[in-house]
Simulated assay, not measured.
Amino acid sequence: MSLDTVVEDIREEARARADEIRSDGEARAEEIIADAEADAERIIEEREEAVEKQIAQEREQTLSSAKLEAKQQRLEARRDVLQQVRGEVEDELAALGGEKREELTRALLDAAAEEFDGDDEVRVHGRADDEELLTEILADYDGYSFAGDYDCLGGVVVESETSRVRVNNTFDSVLEDVWEDNLKELSTRLFDQ
């Protein structure tokens, strides 16, 4: 065998080996590219899912915030209406006059007087505008006297040092009790129609 043949065989073998290495390299490169593309698709899908989840979460938070704000505004509006209604009731009580005012004042004084049986001196306070009315009514009660003004819509505050009792039977206190007892029903009538 000649040297040229041996050289040619070695070259042939080297070319074959180079082709085999190149082929393996290309196959490995294609495999790496395929894996990288699969990873890229997986990462894109994960990111898209994360973004969609974040969008849904932010949408839910925004919706919840909007609902809460709307509920707060409704409650504030209801509170404003209730305050307006109460203000109107107070105005009507303050403006109440004539026989109706006398009748209510006498009833409140009678109820308070039950607490002062046998007391020698009972002082009655009332609204400044009602002094004349109270003085006239108190003429019917032994030991009772008008003791001065009390900041209220009407009615009486009755006290005695003997029994150390003080009874607040003002229109304000009665209104407060009635208001608290009937607030739910009032709200239902005003707002749940």
Rank of each mutant, 00 (worst) to 15 (best):
A113H: 11
E132F: 10
M1R: 10
E115V: 13
A56W: 03
K100V: 15
E30G: 14
A139Y: 01
I55L: 09
T5F: 10
T162E: 15
E88T: 04
V124E: 04
G126S: 04
N168D: 11
L93W: 03
I33A: 13
E90V: 08
L96G: 03
D110T: 14
R166T: 15
D39K: 07
E76N: 09
R127I: 05
E48D: 04
K100I: 11
F191E: 04
E90Y: 09
L186V: 05
E58I: 07
E92V: 02
L75R: 10
E20L: 14
R74V: 11
A147L: 04
E41K: 08
G148K: 02
D142E: 15
E176N: 12
E20Y: 12
T188M: 09
E46F: 02
V89E: 05
M1N: 08
A77F: 09
V81N: 02
H125E: 08
A50R: 04
D119A: 06
E31L: 14
A18S: 04
R47D: 02
M1I: 14
L186N: 05
N182H: 09
Q73P: 00
K67A: 11
A128H: 01
D39L: 07
W179I: 08
L183K: 07
A107P: 00
D9A: 13
F171H: 01
T105G: 06
Q72C: 05
E132Q: 10
A14S: 10
Q193P: 02
L82K: 01
V165T: 15
A112T: 02
E99F: 12
D119P: 04
T170L: 04
Y141F: 12
E46I: 02
A70F: 10
D91E: 14
I21S: 00
L93V: 02
T135N: 08
V6K: 05
Q54E: 14
E30R: 09
V7T: 15
A111T: 05
R11N: 10
D149H: 06
E185R: 09
D35Q: 09
R123I: 09
A70V: 06
T162Y: 04
F116Y: 03
W179Y: 06
G155I: 00
V51W: 01
E41L: 13
V178A: 08
E48Y: 03
E115H: 13
D119F: 06
F146S: 02
E115P: 00
E131D: 03
T105K: 03
K71H: 10
Q83R: 12
T105M: 05
I44Y: 05
D129L: 13
F116A: 01
V6Y: 11
D130E: 01
Y144P: 00
E132A: 15
R15G: 10
S160F: 03
D117T: 14
R123W: 08
S64D: 11
D4H: 15
R11I: 10
L109I: 13
E58L: 13
E114V: 15
I55G: 01
E88A: 13
A107H: 02
G97S: 12
R189P: 00
V167E: 07
E31N: 12
A27F: 05
A66K: 11
V89P: 02
E131M: 06
D181T: 08
D181A: 15
A77D: 06
D110E: 10
E132M: 09
A38M: 10
E114R: 13
